[in-house]
Design a protein around this nucleic acid. Structure first.
Length: 227
DNA sequence: AAGTTGGCCAACCGCTCGTCT
DNA sequence: CAGACGAGCGGTTGGCCAACT
């Protein structure tokens, strides 16, 4: 195993102290990071080089922005992630002032679900294309108390979207626990069928079937950019 | 007020890649 | 060419803190 572990005796682990930060900053700004492995020794730090490198890149290096992502930045992250996948360093390279670790954390904390909603909507589009389904506006036969996506979408149409163009599409997604046995009886898209068809799990997407999930999905289905 | 839960973030771990000898 | 080594990357973990029960 070639992974470098910071387990040598005397090597500190865990949260960095302000004194350690100062030592690292002082050293790197003065001499640069010519060799991360040897650097802590010369800088008077009881850390492994790897830890020093991480601390510098993610926290101490100049021109780093911290927290408070703008909407533009979030949008950029989502777009870049769609293009590049989990290549956080590549994403960070296109976002000056943000570290890969910070972007990764922000993704997992805030943006992941949003991206999955985009994917879900895209899958609906694909499914319709492949099954030659006309856009539909009818509400599914789901009788549970929680609203279906189609209900939400229809409500949204009623209340605020009178200017919808003919290209706007509405979907009726049935969150059924059973496969539909008569696909001709309805234009509803059965989630179980889609899961089978695409080999994905919508449970992952919508494990928190909260109001906010549906509202956000609804919102995004109307603001999905053409990309 | 105390305990629990969940979100967030810093940091570590393990792996791959590129370079050097 | 092969092995050693450092650097870099992405996944994961652990701890802190605020919100909730």
């Amino acid at each position: 195993m070639r992974g470098v572990r910071c387990e040598k005796s005397g090597m500190r682990k865990g949260t960095w102290t302000p004194e350690e930060d100062k030592k690292l900053v002082d050293y790197v700004t003065r001499y640069g990071h010519w060799n991360w492995k040897l650097l802590p020794k010369f800088a008077g730090l009881e850390r492994c080089g790897k830890s020093c490198r991480l601390r510098w890149l993610n926290y101490l290096r100049p021109n780093l922005k911290r927290g408070n992502y703008t909407e533009e930045e979030e949008e950029t992250i989502v777009k870049l992630h769609r293009r590049l996948g989990n290549r956080w360093s590549a994403i960070a390279a296109e976002m000056p002032g943000r570290s890969d670790n910070e972007i990764k954390n922000h993704w997992h904390a805030k943006l992941k679900k949003r991206f999955q909603y985009h994917n879900a909507v895209d899958l609906v589009n694909q499914y319709e294309d492949q099954h030659d389904q006309e856009p539909i506006t009818t509400i599914g036969d789901d009788t549970t108390s929680s609203p279906t996506t189609s209900q939400l979408i229809n409500n949204n149409n009623d209340s605020s979207n009178s200017s919808s163009s003919s290209s706007d599409q509405s979907y009726s997604i049935t969150m059924s626990t059973e496969h539909s046995n008569d696909v001709n009886s309805t234009n509803n898209i059965n989630v179980m069928d889609m899961e089978d068809h695409y080999g994905v799990s919508f449970v992952d997407y919508a494990s928190d079937s909260s109001k906010s999930f549906w509202l956000e999905l609804l919102d995004m289905s109307y603001s999905l950019p053409n990309n």
